[in-house]
C-alpha cells in the first residue's frame, strides 16, 4: 500500500520509526526514497529517531560515560539517607 506525505508525517509524529512493524517501515521507506516533496525532511526525522534509538541502546549497555557524576554533597547526603533507611 502506498502512503501519502500526510500519512508518513502522522505516523512519524505518533510512533518511533524503529519500533514500527517492518511492513509499515518498508512502505514508508519507499515513499521517502521517491518523494521529492517530503523525502528529505522525513529522512532527517528518521535519522534523528535512529540516533535516539541507538543512544538508548548504548545507554542500556552503560557504555556512554559523559564526565558527569553525582556531586560530593549529594553523594554524602544519599549515603547518610541510605544508612538511616536500611
Amino acid at each position: 500500500m502506498i502512503m501519502t506525505c500526510k500519512q508518513v508525517a502522522k505516523a512519524l509524529a505518533e510512533n518511533r520509526y524503529y519500533e514500527m512493524p517492518w511492513n509499515r517501515r518498508i512502505t514508508m521507506f519507499i515513499h521517502i526514497r521517491i518523494c521529492a516533496v517530503c523525502g528529505r525532511y522525513h529522512q532527517q526525522v528518521i535519522d534523528m529517531q535512529k540516533g535516539i534509538h541507538d543512544y538508548l541502546e548504548h545507554e542500556d549497555a552503560g557504555d556512554i560515560t559523559p564526565t558527569l557524576q553525582l556531586s560530593d554533597e549529594a553523594r554524602q547526603r544519599i549515603a547518610e539517607k541510605l544508612k538511616k533507611e536500611k
Binding site: 506525505c5 508525517a9 516533496v37 528529505r40 525532511y41 532527517q44 535519522d47 540516533g51
Partner: peptide, 20 residues
C-alpha cells in the same frame, strides 16, 4: 493540510549513519 514541509531543511553537515 498535507503533512509536508514547504521548505526543505538544510542537509546534515556530517553523515549521521557514520557518526552513529
Amino acid at each position: 493540510a498535507f503533512g509536508i514541509p514547504s521548505q526543505q531543511p538544510a542537509p546534515w553537515k556530517f553523515d549521521p549513519k557514520h557518526a552513529y
